[in-house]
Design a binder for these strands. Structure first.
Length: 979
DNA sequence: GCAAGGTC
């Protein structure tokens, strides 16, 4: 089929570079270029034949998304609506100001075209952009025949095939992105407004400069990224250093030294380790049980994609991912490297790799290597192995133009270009080859191994100096050979916490959890720094700031995993379902937004948790408070001070209630209510006593554990002045802003009755009759009985069954606490261990019990869990200690191995074993029993002073025959009756 | 003033 009139075809690509590449390939370089409305997006013109039809081709581009979404204007202002309304607010899709030029170009060109061919990237976002282009073009030309070109690489064959096999765009793919955009916007905007308005003005956040403009953003990508950082930080904080023990063996001969490692690794049980060590020392002859020689290859990396580029630039040059992408973008724009935003880590078979190598032959540093690669005689070439990722749009990052360094390049430009070139040359090279020898020996039934490596051919390592492959020689051994170790030592070590996350680690976490895309991951990381949620040190390690930790802690306390990656993963799954047509866009939107709205409302109800989290790290602000400060409530009665406005029940951000004049700030009349109130509702019952009225009564609900037991948790009260019970509870419980965390799941309260109540501030002097009774007249604070003191109150014992009653020590005016386990007083001390040096902690002074709590540090108590010490405070005449349980205690290692000594050593205990060992030791011609004193390590680090037992190397000092546990020479430790 | 996703 052919026609005399050529078809006018408007081709639109996702970016200018693709438009140019497509036009150049299709026109074979015979094209005319003209300007469009946008200076970046040129228009290329040429003639082409599509399936025998003459076409007049116009190729132009957009720059990514042409449109944005946002709320309708009436919802744009933060105070225009309740943030929860953002789950239903109308959303508009529009072309933003900076894209109007591109829109005009499309409109002008589409008017006189018959076909529209969409050359957007072949992924979900590309398909969505395709529909944005369709919307703009169809609006001016409804007769357009709309086609989609699908290509997997910008190479001739693919592009020609794509244009000869045009398809229709896929609505499902585009709708998946629509859903993603809408969900991100609604969740992000609602939570951001909520937490910013709640927290910004409630606390002193002076690190951020102008606090008023500070935004505490929430985003479904940025929060899980923060979550990774906080989680690692908590893991480090919770780490409890544990001492472990290992046996090391070395053997030196004329050929060199071999260091043999214990194949058990290490043991946490000192007793076991010492007994095994003792056994080895008694029979120190080593027998070679295995010699294995094999060739080992170290393979070059896969071709480079964006995430690997960012990770390697961070590891090798400590460049931030954001800076790396900026430099890579510049190198790409000036033509030196290929498109830097790619997931692909394998080259297409059709790529002319040798041509790329050929270009690098003239480089003064790696040119020679490039030449060798191309020489078949050298045999250095190897086709690159794919890493298995393919975005179907871009090749792996590779050099596209030779440069020995440009004058305008910074050091980072040079380093990044060099990395791209060296990486490319490496991945078309042979692996490094090494010869590895592994030797295993047996000493008294214990296995040890050593290995050595010799590099035979460095191959790709010659051009890739960023990686090394260490190797050392060991002496030659043969199977069955016996020797006496030169040294056999029992060494100790201490477990260390994992390191803080590096930028490379963080990118890996995000990649694995599907947080962000290769083009946006660095943006999410940067956002955490910009929002003061995290900091990065010189070694690219991330720590959460107090703000970041407080936010995560707050949401964690609520029981929501908004800071974990699962929410995003779930969304990604839903998007996938939409993109293949298994679920509809509206179905996913409805269910996801409904779920998130419920979560949002619940978070708002539980906002006290966020405030508590923030309260741990920040001081309260003296400002009037944020937009969220006063919520709920109802009119209680007329204001008796200004006589103009009403007194209204309100709840403050810290969760406490107040009744204040609605004429504030002109009128400052206020009644502060007890901090122990969990709920308060204005009823319709009018108080008959208070004037001038009418005053409505308020139904209060108190947290029973925070009020004395003889008070009713449900109280119908009045704030007009007649309610004595309310007055008493105000005095007992106080109304201050720094109340303890509420009695919520996850918090353990340890009740520490005081012998001499020391209330907060002025409350002691104006204490209620109940308090006075307990402190001066010997009446129990809890139940007001005189038969016992508050220390022994049965009501308290039954209430805190898991924690015995404690005492408070007021010595030196310091608040001490009693151990929750054994009752002994705990003293405040300063830690001196490597990881916790300088931290204050409470420790049981009994030296038997292991109760200890670090101030704001997680440690294990005998409760068998990690706890976070939150606060010590006084309330209702008691000292309270609140903790948060943050996880169950994990104990590492200490495998219950089948220790042979249980049998053999037990039978051999006593004199005969000693004689055997002694004779072997001295009969060994290579040993020098007493002449090399000091070489052996004392194994009795823990028990040496009390057991008088020393353990030494086979070449060194004598071995004591006494039990190291109790010092008795009649038996060995494994059968010690005192153990 | 808010998200995340394109790209210059």
């Amino acid at each position: 089929m052919s026609s005399s009139q050529p078809i006018r075809v408007l081709n639109v690509a996702e970016k200018p570079s693709v438009a140019k590449a497509v036009a150049t390939i299709l026109s074979r370089g015979q094209l005319h270029t003209r300007e469009g409305r946008s200076r970046y997006n040129k228009i290329f013109e040429f003639n082409y034949t599509v399936r025998n039809q003459q076409c007049q081709m116009l190729v132009t581009s957009v720059t990514g998304h042409l449109m944005e979404i946002d709320f309708e204007d009436r919802y744009r202002k933060w105070h225009s609506c309740d943030p929860v309304d953002l789950y239903h607010a109308q959303i508009k899709k529009f072309v933003p100001e900076d894209k109007l030029d591109i829109k005009r170009t499309l409109e002008e060109e589409a008017r006189w075209c018959q076909w529209l061919v969409l050359w957007l990237d072949c992924d979900r976002e590309g398909e969505n952009i395709a529909y944005e282009v369709v919307e703009v073009c169809s609006a001016v030309n409804s007769r357009l025949n709309i086609w989609r070109a699908r290509f997997s690489a910008l190479i001739e064959r693919d592009i020609h095939e794509a244009v000869q096999n045009l398809a229709r765009p896929n609505k499902f793919l585009a709708e998946a992105v629509d859903a993603r955009q809408e969900i991100d916007l609604r969740i992000g905007a609602s939570f951001t407004r909520f937490q910013t308005m709640l927290l910004r003005d409630a606390f002193v956040l002076d690190f951020a400069g102008e606090e008023r403009n500070m935004i505490l953003s929430y985003g479904p990508c940025q929060f899980p990224t923060l979550g990774f950082i906080v989680e690692r930080y908590w893991e480090i904080q919770a780490h409890e250093p544990e001492e472990f023990w290992m046996i090391n063996c070395s053997h030196t001969s004329e050929e060199g030294t071999a260091k043999f490692g214990w194949m058990r690794g290490h043991m946490f049980d000192y007793t076991c380790a010492v007994i095994i060590y003792e056994m080895c020392v008694q029979e120190p002859i080593a027998t070679v049980t295995k010699v294995r020689d094999q060739q080992k290859n170290k393979y070059p990396p896969h071709p480079l994609n964006t995430i690997e580029l960012e990770k390697r630039a961070s590891r090798y040059f400590r460049m931030s991912s954001e800076h790396t992408m900026k430099v890579a973008e510049e190198l790409y724009m000036s033509g030196f490297i290929s498109y830097p935003r790619t997931e692909t880590d394998g080259f297409s078979e059709r790529t002319d790799l040798r041509a790329i190598v050929q270009e690098q032959r003239g480089h003064p540093t790696w040119g020679m290597y490039a030449q060798q690669l191309l020489d078949p005689g050298v045999g250095l070439w190897r086709n690159p192995v794919s890493g298995g990722h393919d975005d179907k749009a871009h090749p792996p990052i590779h050099p596209t133009k030779f440069s020995a360094g440009e004058s305008g390049w910074s050091q980072d430009h040079r380093r990044l270009y060099e990395l791209v070139v060296r990486h490319f040359l490496a991945c078309v090279s042979q692996p490094a080859i090494g010869a590895e020898t592994t030797v295993e020996i047996d000493i008294a039934g214990e296995q040890f191994s050593a290995s050595g490596r010799v590099i035979i051919a460095k191959n790709y390592l010659d051009v890739y100096p960023y990686e090394s492959w260490g190797g050392s020689m060991i002496p030659k051994y043969s199977f069955g050979e016996q020797f006496t170790p030169t040294a056999l030592t029992l060494d100790s070590g201490v477990t260390r916490p994992p390191p803080l996350l590096s930028e490379s680690d963080l990118l890996s976490c995000m990649d694995k959890a599907g947080i962000g895309t290769d083009a946006t991951m660095h943006d999410h990381i940067k956002k955490l720094l910009d929002r003061f949620y995290a900091t990065k040190d010189a070694n690219t390690h991330f720590s959460p700031t107090n703000l970041g930790e407080a936010l995560v802690m707050g949401y964690d306390d609520m029981g929501y995993e908004l800071w974990k990656p699962y929410l995003r993963s779930q969304m990604e799954n839903d998007m996938r379902e939409v993109s293949v047509g298994r679920k509809s866009k509206s179905q996913v939107l409805d269910s996801c937004l409904q779920q998130m709205k419920a979560c949002f409302l619940d978070a708002r109800v539980n906002k006290a948790k966020l405030l508590e989290g923030m309260g741990i790290f920040f001081d309260r602000s003296s400002r009037r408070g944020g937009d969220e400060q006063q919520v709920g409530g109802g009119v209680v009665g007329p204001c008796g001070i200004c006589h103009e406005s009403d007194m209204v029940l309100k709840r403050k951000p810290d969760g406490n209630f107040m009744v204040g004049c609605s004429g504030y700030p002109q009128c400052r009349n206020v009644v502060w209510l007890p901090g122990s109130i969990s709920e308060a509702t204005v009823t319709t019952q009018v108080c008959n006593s208070c004037t001038p009225g009418p005053f409505l009564r308020i139904q209060f609900k108190f947290r029973s554990i925070e009020i004395p037991p003889n008070y009713n948790a449900n109280h119908l009260g009045c704030v007009g002045g007649c309610d004595e019970t309310l007055k008493e509870l105000i005095e007992i419980c106080g109304t201050g802003s720094r109340n303890p965390p509420a009695n919520i799941p996850g918090l353990v309260k340890i009740i520490i009755p005081v012998s001499a109540a020391r209330g907060r501030g002025g409350h002691t002097s104006s204490s209620t009759s109940a308090q006075r009774g307990s402190t001066r007249q010997g009446v129990c604070t809890h139940c007001r009985q005189t038969s016992h003191s508050s220390n022994d109150c049965p009501s308290q014992v039954s209430r805190s069954q898991s924690v015995p009653p404690q005492r408070r020590n007021t010595q030196n005016g310091e608040t001490s606490i009693a151990c929750s386990t054994c009752g002994t007083m705990c003293g405040l001390r300063t830690a001196n261990t490597e990881t916790n040096r300088g931290r204050k902690f409470y420790s049981c002074q009994s030296r038997v019990c292991k109760f200890f709590v670090y101030a704001k540090l997680f440690l294990s108590a005998d409760m068998g869990c990690y706890v976070c010490f939150m606060d010590i405070f006084q309330k209702t005449g008691h000292t309270w200690l609140s903790f948060k349980i943050i996880g169950s205690k994990k104990r590492r290692g200490n495998k219950k191995s089948n220790l042979r000594w249980e049998d053999s050593m037990g039978n051999n205990s006593g004199g005969s074993g000693a004689n055997n060992s002694s004779s072997r030791s001295t009969s060994n011609p290579r040993s020098n029993p007493r002449g090399r004193g000091g070489h052996g390590r004392s194994g009795g680090r823990r028990g040496q002073s009390t057991t008088d037992t020393t353990f030494v190397s086979a070449t060194g000092d004598p071995v004591s025959r006494r039990c190291f546990n109790c010092g008795d020479p009649s038996h060995f430790a494994n059968v010690c009756p005192n153990r």
